[in-house]
Structures are given as C-alpha cells and as structure tokens.
C-alpha cells in the first residue's frame, strides 16, 4: 500500500559522496574534497548516510542534525549545488555521485557545519522580530482577544519559516552584501505586518527594510522562493512588501 511495500531495488547502489572538508581552526588545513563510498539502503536519507560515514569511516567529519524530521532547520547544506535540508533528502532522489558543501554566506564552523543560528539571531535583533504590542499589560486571566480564523491561518503560514538559511544561500544579493536581510527577514516583516496585534506601521517597517540592505536590495531572482523547504510564498510577499515600502518612501 505504501512505497515501502513496493518492490525494492534488488541491487543496492554504490554511492560516492564528495564532501568539502575544511576546519578553519586548524592552522595547516586547506579546503579540499574528500570522497566517501557507501552502499545505499532503503529509505536512506543524507542524515542516515552521513551518520553512517561518521560512525564507521571518519569520526572527524562535522555536520549538524537535530530533529532529523525536516522541522528544526539545522541541516541545510549544498547538495549537488542546491541548498536543501539534508535530513529529508532521500538518496534515491539523487544520482550515484553526491557532492556536499556547507551553506555559503554563513560563518563556517567546519566541514558541513555553519553558524546559521548566530546570523539568524542578529537578523532577529535588527528587524525586531517580536510582537510590538501596546504598552498596556494584558490580563492573562481574561478571555483572549479575538482574531479572525482565516487571518490566524495566514499568519501561521508565514510563521512556518524554520530559519534554515536555504533562502540566503540561494540569494544573489546575499552573495554580494553580507548585510542583506534576505527572504527570511522579509518573511518575518510580512508576518508581523499582517498581525493586527502588532502596532508598528509601514513607517516603522520602512525604517527597518526600506533600503538596499532590505527590500530594495532584492534583485528579484527569487531563487529563495524555489528552494524554501517550507514552500513559503516568498515571491508574493517580497513583491508586496516592495510595493508597500516604495509607496512609503515617496
């Protein structure tokens, strides 16, 4: 009934994983490609493959997995040139030869491990990605404020971002300027802008993203939209924000 009951490949493929290795803390180290060979297994993901390599072939290989279920955003890496969540990438969807590299743009820790968390925290601080409510204290004993159910769902939709960094890794502008807030930043602004509990105005948002480090830096290449693992509607949100911010700037 399900895919795991369908006929298995009789012969398991022999996979070759080429991994970009580099530990910047190691003074003599130079970036280089290292090849690992493993036999494919049923339902093998890159999480399973890399864990097997670390446990049986090379215990020094560094990478990050946490939830291994596609929800925490830890394991984004370049898989054959494209940013993806490694944990939910099945090897059966890839060719025999797989090239893995760390996400560009972010500070490298070593091998496939990068500091997305540090950058995301900086982005959150800069864009103030928390609800700016009125000053009055909310009485949490009282019935909550109402919200339209459709609007709540729309906010949740934008709130699904997992800060994995794929959009930044795929972004043309980010390759050129380190201070670009990227699609992840725009998604946050769009989310709070939509939320009636947030009292900020477009004037306030213009202060945050109304320049080349924000919406006007976007070249509309929109690879972010194509690679987002959560399929966030980045294309429409960026276009919408840019229109609003352009109007604001007039």
């Amino acid at each position: 009934m399900s895919v795991i009951d369908q006929a298995a490949p009789q012969q398991y493929r022999h996979l070759r994983l080429n991994v970009l290795r580099y530990d910047p803390r190691h003074p003599a180290a130079k970036p280089h490609m290292q090849e690992y060979q493993i036999e494919e297994a049923d339902s093998m993901t890159l999480f399973i493959a890399l864990t097997e390599i670390r446990e049986h072939q090379d215990s020094t290989l560094q990478f990050d997995f946490v939830c291994r279920a596609g929800i925490c955003g830890s394991c984004a890496m370049m898989v054959n040139g494209r940013p993806r969540l490694a944990c939910r990438t099945l090897t059966r969807d890839l060719p025999d030869e797989i090239t893995l590299a760390p996400l560009p743009f972010f500070e490298l820790i070593a091998d496939l491990s990068v500091r997305t968390g540090k950058w995301m925290r900086g982005m959150s601080e800069r864009l103030q990605t928390w609800l700016h409510a009125q000053e009055r204290e909310v009485d949490i004993c009282r019935i909550e404020e109402r919200m339209d159910p459709d609007l709540a769902e729309q906010i949740y939709e934008l709130d699904r971002c997992i800060e994995c960094g794929c959009c930044i890794a795929a972004c043309g502008t980010a390759q050129m300027r380190q201070d670009f807030v990227g699609a992840v930043g725009f998604a946050k602004i769009a989310r709070f802008r939509l939320d009636p509990r947030d009292t900020r105005t477009d004037d306030d948002y213009y202060e945050l993203i109304g320049d080349d480090t924000g919406v006007f830096g976007c070249m509309s290449l929109l690879a972010c939209h194509d690679v987002c693992p959560k399929s966030l509607p980045l294309q429409t949100q960026i276009a919408f924000l840019r229109r609003k911010m352009a109007a604001q700037g007039l």
């Binding site: 909550e144 404020e145 159910p149 949740y156 939320d195």
Partner: peptide, 19 residues
C-alpha cells in the same frame, strides 16, 4: 495552563481560532 496560552497569544502566537 490557560494563563500560559493567553500569555503566548499576547506575545503573538498564531493560535488556530474558532469559526
């Protein structure tokens, strides 16, 4: 627990709502 849910709502949590 009800206070925690309502506090989160005041902090911007996108709880699903009754129709």
């Amino acid at each position: 627990a009800p206070k925690a849910v309502r506090e989160l709502a005041a902090w911007g949590m996108p709880w699903s709502r009754v129709r």
